[in-house]
Simulated scan of single mutants.
Amino acid sequence: MCKSTMLMSTKANRYANQLLDARARAKLMPLLSAADALSPMDGYDIGKRILDASIGQGDTPVGRKVGFSNRTIWPKYGITETINAPIWAHVFDSTVRYAEDNRGIQSLEGALQPRIEPEVVFSLGRTPAPDADLEEIADCIEWMAHAFEIVVCPFPDWKFEVVDAIAAFGLHGTLIIGEPHMLSTTTRRNLASMLANASVSLSCCTEDSVTLCGAGFGSDVLDSPVHALWHLHQVLNAQSQFTPLQAGEIITTGTWTDAYPVQAGQTWVTAFSGIALPGLTVSFV
Results as ranks from 00 to 15, higher is better:
residue 2 C to G: 08
residue 2 C to N: 13
residue 4 S to M: 10
residue 4 S to T: 08
residue 10 T to A: 15
residue 11 K to E: 09
residue 14 R to H: 07
residue 14 R to N: 05
residue 17 N to M: 09
residue 18 Q to Y: 09
residue 24 A to N: 07
residue 25 R to W: 04
residue 25 R to Q: 12
residue 27 K to C: 10
residue 28 L to E: 08
residue 29 M to V: 03
residue 30 P to A: 01
residue 33 S to E: 03
residue 36 D to Y: 10
residue 37 A to K: 15
residue 41 M to V: 15
residue 41 M to F: 11
residue 42 D to I: 12
residue 44 Y to P: 14
residue 45 D to V: 15
residue 45 D to Q: 14
residue 46 I to M: 00
residue 47 G to H: 06
residue 49 R to Y: 01
residue 50 I to M: 05
residue 50 I to V: 07
residue 52 D to K: 10
residue 53 A to S: 05
residue 57 Q to D: 14
residue 57 Q to A: 13
residue 59 D to I: 04
residue 60 T to K: 12
residue 65 K to E: 03
residue 65 K to I: 01
residue 65 K to D: 03
residue 65 K to T: 00
residue 67 G to K: 01
residue 70 N to A: 02
residue 71 R to F: 13
residue 71 R to K: 11
residue 72 T to W: 07
residue 72 T to Y: 07
residue 89 A to G: 03
residue 89 A to M: 01
residue 92 F to N: 04
residue 94 S to L: 02
residue 96 V to Y: 03
residue 96 V to D: 01
residue 98 Y to K: 14
residue 104 G to A: 14
residue 107 S to F: 15
residue 112 L to D: 00
residue 113 Q to G: 01
residue 119 E to T: 04
residue 120 V to Y: 12
residue 122 F to I: 00
residue 123 S to P: 06
residue 125 G to D: 01
residue 127 T to V: 03
residue 127 T to P: 10
residue 127 T to G: 09
residue 127 T to D: 01
residue 127 T to W: 03
residue 131 D to C: 04
residue 144 M to H: 05
residue 144 M to L: 05
residue 145 A to Y: 09
residue 146 H to V: 10
residue 146 H to K: 11
residue 146 H to F: 07
residue 146 H to I: 11
residue 148 F to P: 02
residue 148 F to R: 03
residue 151 V to I: 07
residue 152 V to L: 06
residue 154 P to W: 00
residue 156 P to R: 06
residue 159 K to F: 09
residue 162 V to Y: 09
residue 165 A to L: 00
residue 176 I to E: 09
residue 176 I to V: 10
residue 181 H to A: 04
residue 184 S to P: 11
residue 189 R to M: 08
residue 191 L to F: 12
residue 197 N to I: 13
residue 198 A to D: 02
residue 201 S to D: 13
residue 202 L to Q: 00
residue 204 C to G: 10
residue 205 C to I: 07
residue 205 C to Q: 15
residue 207 E to D: 13
residue 207 E to G: 13
residue 208 D to T: 07
residue 211 T to E: 08
residue 213 C to I: 11
residue 215 A to L: 13
residue 215 A to P: 15
residue 216 G to V: 00
residue 217 F to H: 13
residue 219 S to Q: 11
residue 220 D to Q: 15
residue 220 D to E: 08
residue 220 D to C: 15
residue 223 D to H: 12
residue 225 P to K: 14
residue 225 P to W: 03
residue 226 V to C: 13
residue 229 L to W: 04
residue 229 L to P: 05
residue 231 H to L: 08
residue 233 H to N: 08
residue 235 V to I: 12
residue 235 V to L: 02
residue 235 V to M: 03
residue 239 Q to W: 04
residue 239 Q to I: 04
residue 240 S to N: 14
residue 242 F to N: 01
residue 243 T to L: 06
residue 245 L to P: 12
residue 250 I to P: 05
residue 252 T to N: 02
residue 252 T to I: 05
residue 256 W to P: 07
residue 258 D to K: 13
residue 266 Q to F: 14
residue 268 W to K: 06
residue 269 V to P: 14
residue 270 T to G: 02
residue 274 G to L: 06
residue 278 P to T: 14
residue 278 P to N: 15
residue 280 L to Q: 12
residue 281 T to R: 11
residue 281 T to L: 14
residue 283 S to I: 14
residue 283 S to L: 04
residue 285 V to L: 15
residue 285 V to H: 11
